[in-house]
Amino acid sequence: MIELYTAATPNGHKASVTLEELGLPYAVHPIDLGAGEQKQDWFLKINPNGRIPAIVDRGNDNFAVFESGAILVYLAEKTGELMPADEKGRSRTMQWLMFQMGGVGPMMGQANVFHRYWQEKIPPVIARYQNESRRLLEVLDGRLAQSRYLAGEDYTIADIANWCWARTHEWSGVSVDGLDHLQRWLGDVADRPAVQRGICVPRREEALETRDRAKTEELIREVRGFLQQ
């Protein structure tokens, strides 16, 4: 059983979509980001950086994994799926995964902050992050003009990672007009049943349940228990 600590964000969905694609049994523990639950001592024992998602693999001596990209690699290698076995295919998958981790996620995340949440609207800053996000989506479009998926003809964790962010382009205020190959890929991935299930994790009712103090305290005791085993 995989214990998944997550919230309804692109990075959180990367983990839940991957778990759904792989068909691994997992339990969802929604983290209330607004309440700062990810900064509590019990969670920092799983992820010292205080960010979601994180997993604990109970079937592997309660091994904890944090950082969304590392989680995807761990799960792919654990199952031998969503990661090519050949050297070049694996490298291409890792390259495009790192492209998302170092580029698409951070740039779109900053676009979200300044476009949606920052108290003062600073047009040059907003334009800087939106323009860079658009440029990165154009890079994806160029790659997808050459192959069906990012690492080649096979669907991999690189597609999951990039798709979970690229699908949110409207929220970042970034247009995908004219990026026909990207739009084709966005639709192809969105049609996958496992993806449709994964982006609904955690369910709204699950997230609301975490605000119940008794349930939260029970979860904390449980986590402490299996981390000490």
Rank of each mutant, 00 (worst) to 15 (best):
N112F: 06
V56L: 10
L75E: 02
V113E: 06
R51K: 15
P25A: 05
F114H: 14
P30A: 05
R203H: 07
A27Q: 15
A15M: 00
T93S: 13
S91C: 10
I199N: 02
L179M: 15
D177N: 13
V56R: 09
D141S: 12
L4K: 00
S16C: 02
P25K: 11
E205S: 11
D32E: 02
S175V: 03
V189C: 13
L19Y: 00
S68I: 00
G225S: 04
R211T: 13
G225I: 01
E67S: 01
L227E: 07
L219W: 04
F114R: 07
P123H: 08
E67G: 01
R211H: 13
T210K: 06
A190T: 05
E217F: 14
H13G: 01
A85Q: 13
K45R: 15
A54G: 08
R211N: 14
K88P: 10
L137I: 08
V73S: 06
K215W: 09
M108D: 00
K78L: 15
L227T: 06
M98N: 15
D57K: 08
R134Q: 11
L19W: 01
Q110D: 10
P84Q: 11
E120K: 15
S91I: 03
K39R: 15
L136D: 02
A35S: 04
L97G: 05
L137Q: 04
N62W: 07
G198N: 01
P193R: 11
A27D: 15
K14M: 07
V176F: 09
E37C: 00
I220K: 12
G225V: 03
R204P: 10
A190R: 11
